[in-house]
């Protein structure tokens, strides 16, 4: 009918107030708004419904919507807090907040633990670690003999599984990460502090005081 107001804002399903999200995360309000721009881009890339589907997530990571990857699957599952097969805006912001440079190491450590606890048993088992090493090698087209893979897993377990019960529990994990901080390198995304520059939001707010 040609009578749309340019002021009418239609948000994606599951949209949440940036002020609320900023209060619960490491982001400022304008960073959340910039993330909304990124979210819209991702969530309309294939299935245009304003929700991030697995294919869209894979496409954003690999430029290939069919690329199967154990680790991308794990990240997707952790982001999909409601476990309904899609990532909504609030889930996206809360999960990405873990990767913010200002987020405490303890939160990053806990997130990485859940990431690597493939079967949600409350500990990282040897078989899970081996599965992840094999997945990484296959993804990277690296070929190592069975003996070497076993040695890498054994060696890591020797260092991490301090009570020697064949699994890494959360306390052992925290201790291991403290001794090997490089493990958490990928849990911080410097991009997140420049997000307002990369994805400027054109919404003007009366309150833009994004003090820390």
């Amino acid at each position: 009918m040609g009578c749309f107001s340019s002021k009418q804002i239609k948000h994606t399903p599951g949209y949440e107030d940036p002020v609320l999200l900023a209060s619960e995360t490491s982001f400022t309000v304008s960073e959340v708004e910039a993330l909304y721009e990124l979210f819209k881009k991702l969530s309309f890339s294939i299935i245009k419904d304003g929700l991030i589907h697995k294919e869209e997530f894979q496409f954003a990571l690999f430029r290939n919507s069919n690329k199967k990857n154990l680790f991308a699957d794990r990240i997707f599952d952790l982001f999909d807090v409601k476990r309904n097969g899609v990532i909504e805006f609030g889930e996206f912001v809360r999960s990405l907040s873990v990767f913010h440079p200002k987020t405490p190491e303890s939160e990053k450590t806990a997130f990485a633990f859940r990431l690597y606890d493939l079967r949600h048993t409350g500990s990282i088992e040897r078989v899970e670690l081996k599965e992840m090493v094999l997945a990484l090698l296959s993804e990277s087209d690296l070929h190592l003999s069975e003996d070497i893979v076993e040695a890498i897993v054994d060696n890591t377990f020797k260092q991490a599984d301090s009570n020697g019960d064949g699994k890494i529990d959360e306390e052992e994990w925290k201790d291991f990460v403290k001794r090997n901080p490089a493990i958490l390198k990928n849990m911080t995304l410097p991009y997140l502090v420049d997000i307002t520059m990369s994805f400027p939001s054109f919404v003007v707010h009366s309150d833009t005081s994004d003090a820390d």
């Binding site: 992840m132 990484l136 890498i152």
Partner: peptide
């Protein structure tokens, strides 16, 4: 020596865990 590699450090290099690609235009 590969046997001294830390398995978790190895895993953390996965492309599937490199979320910075989400921000590429």
């Amino acid at each position: 020596r590969p046997s001294l590699m830390n398995a978790f450090e190895l895993i953390s290099t996965s492309q599937g865990l490199n979320l910075s690609t989400l921000f590429e235009k």
